[in-house]
């Protein structure tokens, strides 16, 4: 016997539960993924801790954008001034995306964001040779809830300093 059935494709709607936003990721304030120890104290204006806390080590982006906002440009201008004063530091700029996107696109988007920061710092006079970039896409969120409060913190570029490898 022959079976032949034609039905419209089913649209499967899976129920989702929306969890409350949890504040504070593991790396929050720790100066990016590679930041570990050796920050100095925030009272020392030449320390990584001072850079992270007082200058500001990160800038945030709008959804799917790599354009630097006025606020971001202000932070990066201060980063550039600090980097030119403290020439013994190198900086790795990490680009990140929120979870609302496909994995490989978000990798490319993170690279775009990191590159936008790098280009801005270079335009402010930081030698290109002291800067490098990496993208983590959506792989390393610092805030883990699934709403805009967290997403806005995850769409970031973090300037991660390392000492002793200056030009």
């Amino acid at each position: 016997m022959t079976f032949r059935f034609r039905t419209a494709a089913l649209l499967l709607i899976a129920a989702i539960s929306v969890s409350a936003c949890a504040r504070g990721g593991l790396n929050d304030g720790a100066g990016g993924l590679n930041g570990q120890g050796g920050f100095g104290t925030a009272s020392d204006p030449t320390s990584i801790a001072f850079f992270n806390q007082s200058v500001g080590d990160r800038v945030l982006f709008a959804v799917d954008q790599s354009t630097l906002s006025v606020e971001a440009q202000s932070i990066l201008t201060a980063q550039a001034q600090w980097l030119m004063t403290n020439s013994e530091y190198r900086a790795l700029i990490e680009g990140h995306a929120d979870e609302q996107g496909t994995r490989e696109y978000n990798l490319a988007l993170g690279a775009r964001r990191a590159s936008a920061v790098r280009d801005f710092l270079v335009s402010q006079g930081v030698p290109d040779s002291r800067l490098s970039t990496v993208s983590y896409g959506k792989e390393r969120p610092i805030e883990i809830c699934s709403n805009e409060a967290c997403y806005s913190q995850n769409r970031r570029a973090v300037t991660v300093l390392s000492a002793g490898a200056g030009v």
């Binding site: 969890s19 936003c21 979870e99 883990i144």
Partner: peptide
């Protein structure tokens, strides 16, 4: 398929 939220 990834679920939402802190335990996603």
């Amino acid at each position: 398929r990834e679920t939402a939220g802190t335990d996603g």
